Amino acid sequence: MTTMIGYLRVSTEEQASSGLGLDAQRQSIQRYADAHGWNVLWYVDEGVSAKSLARPQLQAALARLHVLPKSRDAGGIVVAKLDRLSRSVHDFSGILKLATARKWAVVAIDLGVDTSTPTGKLVANVMMSVAEWEREVIAERTSAAMQAAKRAGKHVGRVSVLPQATADRLLTLRASHTLTGTASKLNAEGLTTATGKPWSVNTVSKAQQRLSGPRAADVERGHR
């Protein structure tokens, strides 16, 4: 009998404690396994997002599969729905490539992806081709947009947006506090920078300049 890894995931602690989401996934996988004569080894990530593949039980499952075929005790990984494994087409494509290289199967029941069958392999290959095309198109568009922005003399790079409430509070504090005092106040109130980091003299100064434009220089000189 073939042994497969059944991977379950729920993204919130509430789902994990109720077991409802996990039970539905387990039942779906078990029905599929019974129909194919598979034994199932269960790996479960509870209260974990699928925004990346850095999940304890998923990594443990992949490590179990990432051995030579003769030493492997599982034939692949099966999920009830693709989004339990990954919400990123790029990440899923990477898993499929790894599975192909190491000769183990990937099964996503909801999409009919089952690389242990010829039809399932075809579906998986189409998905990988689409993912590759999507990456190339996005890269091409991004490059063209950046080049156009450079020609127009515009700033090219990551722009983080500061919440309006935080921006207003920063400007209010700067009217009567030094840069150091403003940073301390913002941090004490639990307000972070646009990238989620604590405030410093430097980040307060830069944020104020972006928010206030020419007026910032006058306030800067008066409240250092």
Results as ranks from 00 to 15, higher is better:
8 L>F: 10
9 R>G: 00
10 V>H: 09
10 V>A: 07
14 E>K: 14
15 Q>G: 01
21 G>N: 10
22 L>G: 08
23 D>F: 03
25 Q>Y: 01
28 S>P: 04
28 S>L: 06
34 D>Q: 15
36 H>W: 09
38 W>I: 02
40 V>T: 03
43 Y>S: 10
46 E>D: 06
50 A>T: 12
50 A>K: 06
51 K>S: 08
53 L>Y: 05
56 P>S: 09
59 Q>C: 00
60 A>L: 13
60 A>P: 13
61 A>N: 07
63 A>M: 02
64 R>K: 04
66 H>P: 10
68 L>G: 12
68 L>N: 12
70 K>Y: 10
72 R>N: 11
74 A>E: 02
75 G>V: 14
77 I>D: 11
77 I>T: 13
78 V>N: 03
88 S>G: 06
89 V>W: 15
92 F>N: 07
92 F>V: 03
104 W>E: 08
106 V>W: 00
111 L>W: 08
112 G>E: 10
113 V>D: 01
114 D>M: 08
115 T>G: 09
115 T>P: 05
115 T>I: 02
116 S>N: 11
120 G>F: 00
120 G>A: 06
125 N>D: 03
126 V>W: 02
127 M>R: 04
127 M>Y: 14
128 M>D: 07
129 S>K: 11
131 A>D: 02
132 E>V: 06
132 E>L: 02
133 W>A: 13
135 R>D: 00
138 I>N: 05
143 S>I: 03
145 A>M: 04
148 A>W: 02
148 A>L: 03
156 V>T: 07
160 S>V: 13
160 S>P: 10
162 L>A: 12
167 A>L: 12
168 D>I: 09
172 T>C: 09
173 L>R: 12
173 L>P: 09
174 R>L: 12
175 A>D: 11
176 S>N: 15
179 L>I: 11
180 T>P: 05
183 A>I: 04
184 S>G: 08
187 N>H: 13
191 L>V: 04
193 T>A: 07
198 P>D: 15
199 W>P: 12
199 W>F: 11
207 A>H: 14
208 Q>T: 13
210 R>F: 14
213 G>P: 00
215 R>C: 14
215 R>F: 15
217 A>N: 14
217 A>W: 13
221 R>M: 13
